[in-house]
Design a binder for these strands. Structure first.
Lengths: 349, 349
DNA sequence: ACGACTAATGTAAGCGTTTGCGGTGGATTC
DNA sequence: GAATCCACCGCAAACGCTTACATTAGTCGT
């Protein structure tokens, strides 16, 4: 085992100096530091994480809790978070709070779920936590608070937790306005649902933005135009089939609360013989990588950047001195990306 | 801070006994153990990971290295691995070895990539490593070996590393045989490519299985029927457009090396007016969640189970005594799932 | 030339567990 | 009833670092 002592010996200094040199402390002479670095390099020495943590109280590790692991959006957030953490020398340990129905640790009360909060997150393995789109109850929130580490939420409904989120109302309004500006008046909205109905306000916000845009354009909202699905392609498809199958609806445009649902909508439209965008315009939200492929107009919300932001927010708190090239700005960016799925409304047939 | 001493005090025993009781060691009287557990519960005590690691040399943490974070397959593997690790009380720390072209740490020599191998993975934060679909050079492999921890590869071309992998040749053969059994003779193959051309033998294996199946069916292979894409929907789409646009090809079926490419193929077919499966049969590999939606026939390779297997293999090595309900079997399961995208070949037009 | 600083380094006391070793007392054996 | 054994538990020494504090050697001002 190559410990810090070996390095000290080889460099001809004390272990304290090695520690300081390797940690980049300013109180080490340049020449000494160089010698230490060289010795460490030669021995292939790397500080032991656990020893360092125990002594310093810092783990250089950040936890990320996520409800989904195999969805593009969440993977992208993870990617962004990992990149900025790694660049700062931090590790990322991942906690999956499974939110799928069957067998998943969905409901509070599920043993796996309890164990996550009561055991895994309490063992001081991380310096801080990122909670992505998490819905939890008060006991869980309390147990998060008990770990006494910086915590930032991303897009979730965590009451009392500093949370980064796009302005869902504004985003939805922008999307709807895009359709309005193209002359559409029969605009349907494929809204989202949560796995369990708690106060997951994202769908509500987006619906609010949709309705606001309509109101401002003096278009009367028609409840038959609004349907909910589960954020997936299949969900968007099914709902759109309903929408297009109902002779009373007569929608010329669809605003879906996620890109995946929008893809489903596009496919559904095609399956019933409606051309996109000639007969039906479709717009989504997310900036999914497949938008390019499907030609879907969307509001890009840059999920990777969201992950970066969450991470750099925490880093700034953990290392107040260091310069992180992270923007101070808390509001998350979004951007209308116009592609081929939206066009001027056809004159009423 | 509630340390082990507080618990010892409350339970009226020494810290040694608390440690043993909490660790489930057999040399603790049942009554004592109960008292300790109760005391720990009451104080909300959880063993400090770093102190425990330092003292015991075990971190109860496994590292997972992946080239992609936002692709369904990799997310699913991650999900499976996380579940079995968590059930065994292990944490999972994630390392992203970015394999996308632009800006990613693709090429060996990239500083981020080097740092991962030389620094992050060396700091003894994990007891073992899972390397998923990783391509690396000798220096990198050597540095992995230097960390001296159990290591298992999943589906990657890691020479000299115990690797779990489906039998790609057999899988491809099975897929092709399915098409053959439906009477197809002009069977195209959409093969995969790697980001950088190293010895990533998965595409080669699958092509080999394809060719073997043809040979055994006395169908002469036609090189014009084989094209490569990058495992994505867009890639599969583009290649299929070529295939169907070439009058010399006359394919009635396509075997794609991944489900995503198969989706692309289905969409391409529809875009050029070919009906699936009436005019063109399509089969993929993976068991992607969207297969159901698209009605794609595929060979399911159960990625979540692959993650589970990789994890339980390591757990067995880390805890030889414990009973893990993991199968001894090293060969990974796969299964033909027939849906609506494959049908009997139309009689030649 | 001498005291007062400052910069650089060393000394050693933790950090919170785990675990080898040894001790104690009750049960078992002859 | 002595000898032996065993089940259970406590003592205290690591584990490999970090860091407050002490120490040393220059530097500077006067």
């Amino acid at each position: 085992m190559t410990s810090i002592e070996k390095v000290a010996e080889l460099a001809g200094v004390s272990t304290a100096t090695v520690s300081r040199a390797l940690a980049g402390k300013p109180t080490v002479a340049a020449a000494t530091r160089a010698r230490v670095l060289e010795a460490a390099q030669e021995l292939g020495y790397v500080v032991s994480a656990s020893a360092s943590s125990l002594a310093s109280g810092k783990t250089r590790n950040v936890g990320v809790v996520m409800p989904f692991l195999n969805r593009w959006f969440f993977g992208s957030v993870l990617k962004g978070a990992h990149r900025t953490l790694a660049d700062a020398g931090y590790d990322l340990t991942l906690y999956h709070l499974d939110s799928e129905r069957e067998g998943g640790a969905t409901e509070p009360g599920d043993p796996r779920r309890t164990r996550l909060f009561e055991e895994f997150l309490q063992r001081k393995r991380v310096d801080a936590l990122i909670a992505v789109s998490l819905e939890m109850n008060d006991a869980e929130l309390e147990s998060l608070r008990r770990i006494g580490k910086p915590l930032v939420g991303l897009g979730g409904p965590l009451s009392g937790v500093p949370t980064l989120s796009i302005d869902d109302v504004a985003v939805a309004k922008l999307a709807t306005e895009h359709l309005v500006s193209l002359g559409h008046t029969r605009i349907a909205h494929v809204s989202g649902t949560s796995t369990y109905a708690r106060d997951f306000h994202l769908p509500a916000h987006r619906r609010e933005g949709y309705e606001t845009a309509l109101r401002e354009a003096n278009i009367t909202a028609d409840p038959r135009l609004v349907r909910s699905a589960d954020f997936t392609i299949a969900g968007g498809y099914a709902v759109t089939r309903q929408l297009l199958g109902d002779p009373e609806v007569r929608a010329t445009a669809i605003f879906a609360a996620s890109d995946e649902m929008a893809f489903g909508a596009m496919i559904a439209a095609r399956d019933v013989g409606r051309r996109v965008p000639e007969d039906l315009s479709v717009i989504g939200i997310d900036g999914h990588e497949l938008c390019e492929f499907f030609g879907l107009t969307t509001i890009d919300q840059f999920p990777e950047i969201q992950g970066e932001r969450a991470a750099s927010t925490l880093l700034r708190e953990l290392e107040p001195h260091t310069q992180h090239h992270a923007p101070e700005n808390v509001s998350l960016p979004y951007e209308l990306a116009v592609r081929k799925s939206t066009a001027v409304a056809a004159s009423p047939a």
